[in-house]
């Protein structure tokens, strides 16, 4: 049910040309997917998605829209070629799912590699009930450190793009200002 709603929202995102409405719809899309994550038992993920997708990213997109204008012009070329490429890829992927194990099966191969160990042993080894936290911070501590560094690097990138440009442009006379 939620998935069908999501599909409908996705189509809306595609059709609407007013970017302001699109950004709002993207927020709805995020909230719906957070609901879906809750249904699928991924409460931590749902939490993050709701806070990030519906909160911060909407604000950032609105800021970008205020700077870049909120109307999208009509695409200049015919949509047939992209449509063809997309259909082809989609068919190939659906063909690929035929070999996938059924949804929700307890003996799917994905559940029998390290997940068993995490669920059975983590309480003795780590001593905290939330397995997601213990895997995140302890078993996969290196991973998370890498992710933190990536987030930091992204912020440095944004700073270089947005701070550096301002000073360089204002130096030659101060009249040009910012566009």
């Amino acid at each position: 049910m939620l998935l069908t709603l999501l599909a409908a929202t996705g189509l809306g995102l595609l059709r609407i040309r007013n970017l302001f409405a699109v950004v709002m719809l993207a927020g709805v899309y995020s909230l719906l997917s957070a609901g879906l994550f809750t249904v699928m038992d991924a409460v931590d993920v749902a939490f993050t998605e709701a806070a990030v997708g519906a909160g911060i990213s909407t604000v950032l997109f609105l800021g970008a829209l205020a700077l870049c204008g909120h109307h999208e012009s009509r695409p200049g070329h015919t949509p047939l070629l992209p449509l063809f490429v997309v259909c082809l890829t989609g068919i190939a992927l659906v063909y690929g799912t035929m070999d996938m194990p059924p949804f929700g099966g307890a003996d799917n191969p994905v559940h029998h590699h390290v997940a068993d160990h995490y669920l059975e042993e983590s309480y003795h080894e780590i001593g905290i009930p939330n397995v997601v936290t213990s895997v995140l911070a302890s078993y996969r501590g290196y991973d998370t450190m890498g992710e933190t560094t990536v987030v930091f690097a992204a912020a440095v990138g944004v700073m270089i793009l947005l701070i550096g440009a301002r000073t360089r442009r204002e130096r030659p006379g101060g009249e040009e200002g910012d566009g």
């Binding site: 699928m40 038992d41 991924a42 931590d44 993920v45 993050t48 998605e49 990030v52 997708g53 911060i56 990213s57 950032l60 994905v110 559940h111 390290v114 997940a115 995490y118 669920l119 397995v131 997601v132 895997v135 995140l136 996969r140 991973d143 998370t144 992710e147 990536v150 987030v151 992204a154 912020a155 990138g157 944004v158 793009l161």
Partner: peptide, 22 residues
């Protein structure tokens, strides 16, 4: 349910918003 995908996606969401902002 399997906690491993949750961990991977949790971090991916935050990295995703960071790259989106770039």
């Amino acid at each position: 349910s399997n906690p491993l995908p949750h961990v991977l996606i949790l971090t991916a969401i935050v990295v995703g918003i960071a790259t989106t902002s770039v």
